[in-house]
């Protein structure tokens, strides 16, 4: 499978990655190379083979459906790159909000 510049631009858009126009053709070459190399998997007969979903042979345990954590809104918001807005600035764990550019006009 060979990818052209437009396809690479579309993948970048899907992945929410800004890729400068001048990098698109290099990337198209690299990604095509990787995909061509991956194509060798087509040699393998996988008819009736169930895809492996987990490597674990161990049955993983269920846990009780209980709240075990919480009341740490201050920690959750501590690294917000655009700053956070708190419901009650004197008690950050009371809750708050991440900030984003205006979405609704």
């Amino acid at each position: 499978m060979s990818l052209d510049k437009d396809t690479v631009a579309r993948i970048a858009r899907l992945a929410r990655l800004k890729v400068p126009e001048e990098e698109l053709s290099t990337l198209a070459g690299e990604l095509s190379g990787i995909l061509a190399w991956i194509e060798q998997l087509n040699e393998v007969d996988t008819k009736d083979v169930a895809p492996l979903a987990s490597v674990s042979d161990v049955t993983l345990p269920m846990r009780a459906d209980k709240v075990t954590d919480g009341g740490i809104a201050g920690n959750v918001l501590a690294n917000a790159p655009g700053g956070a807005v708190y419901v009650d600035p004197t008690d950050k764990n009371a809750g708050g909000f991440f900030t984003v550019p205006k979405v609704v006009e």
Binding site: R13, R16, N79, A80, G82, V100, V103
Partner: peptide, 19 residues
């Protein structure tokens, strides 16, 4: 995504901020 932690590079809207 530039919203909850790590780097944020502003954009004119949310999608551009992500990208």
């Amino acid at each position: 995504d530039g919203v909850r932690y790590g780097l944020r590079v502003p954009g004119k809207d949310l999608v551009e901020l992500y990208e």
